[in-house]
């Protein structure tokens, strides 16, 4: 159910067609009903997805028994499925949603400075929906994505080659795609990174839900070098047809001296991990990491 490498292949064209048809003729409720059966299938038979979901749930609910965690895996899968359906419904224009947009004034200030900014997202809530709320700034958003994730995200955000809103930068290109990243930030555009996946960049250990976890620091190093802020994007489902899109957490990495850069980077990454931790405490079933970030390599 998640959007990691293997799971990208789980949703297929026929599946999307079924959900879209249910949405068109029966609305969200009927699509959710179809989802409950699909979720059951993954819950029963997709061991890999269950294991990766349990890695998070065991830390989020440390006192829960294995059986209870197993049931909560279903709830988490169902929650992610609902957000996927919401996304299809919203992007296709089939359902209207209410958005509570936090941090608009702060974003206005950031964009008024002329330079671009880094948009830091994570597998938390409906991060793709938060992107659709940035249209009004007339800035192109470049998503730094591995080619294996391209297809799923392009589909989710309706991105095509002619898109004036979105562009893709591959971190598999020369030097992690640094040249176009710096260029687009200088051009005043938005470059979006996933803050919970290294994608070729090195990571640091941070405290996350009571254990040490690996988080990448590439976005912070780029922000510090190019002197642009990092805007964190969090989109939480708060009701049947309502979302809260929060851009209020802005980090401004600035090196204090040239020594111990990695320590300084660690502090900013920890700040971000704390933001995510708080989000998952408030919305425990909107954590779609599906990747064992606690597995220290």
């Amino acid at each position: 159910m998640s959007e990691t490498t293997e799971q990208t292949h789980r949703g297929n064209t026929i599946g999307f067609w079924f959900f879209k048809t249910f949405l068109r003729f029966g609305g969200l409720w009927t699509a959710y009903m179809l989802l409950s059966g699909v979720t059951l299938h993954y819950w029963l038979f997709d061991r890999k997805a269950v294991k990766s979901a349990a890695a998070y749930l065991k830390r989020r609910f440390p006192l829960n028994s294995k059986v209870l965690i197993r049931f909560k895996v279903y709830k988490l899968f169902f929650s992610q499925g609902k957000q996927l359906i919401d996304r299809i419904a919203y992007i296709s224009g089939l359902v209207e949603f209410d958005f509570d947009f936090l941090g608009q004034d702060m974003l206005d200030k950031v964009t008024a400075e002329g330079k671009g900014f880094i948009l830091l997202t994570a597998h938390a809530g409906n991060w793709q929906l938060s992107m659709t709320k940035l249209n009004r700034f007339n800035k192109k958003i470049f998503l730094v994505l591995r080619s294996e994730n391209n297809k799923a995200v392009k589909k989710a955000l309706n991105i095509n080659e002619e898109s004036k809103i979105f562009g893709i930068i591959s971190p598999e290109e020369h030097l992690g795609g640094i040249v176009p990243v710096v260029k687009e930030l200088n051009n005043g555009n938005i470059v979006s990174y996933m803050g919970d996946r290294p994608y070729g960049f090195e990571s640091v250990e941070v405290d996350f839900m009571g254990s040490k976890a690996n988080f990448p620091y590439g976005a912070f190093a780029i922000a510090a070098a190019t002197k642009v802020p990092i805007v964190t994007a969090l989109a939480s489902k708060t009701g049947f047809k309502s979302y809260k899109v929060d851009f209020t957490n802005i980090i401004k990495p600035e090196y204090k001296g040239r020594k111990n850069k990695k320590n300084q980077l660690s502090e900013w990454v920890q700040e971000y991990a704390d933001i995510l931790n708080n989000f998952f405490e408030e919305y425990p079933y909107q954590c779609f990491l599906f990747h064992d970030v606690w597995e220290i390599k």
Binding site: G177, I178, V181, F201, A225, T226
Partner: peptide
């Protein structure tokens, strides 16, 4: 050097030498 060092190089080439690397 790694890709993060590359960021610093791209930035100082531009800042100090006025060199903008146009594409990959």
């Amino acid at each position: 050097l790694d890709s993060l060092d590359a960021v610093e190089i791209v930035v100082f080439l531009q800042r100090i030498w006025g060199i903008e690397i146009k594409d990959m």
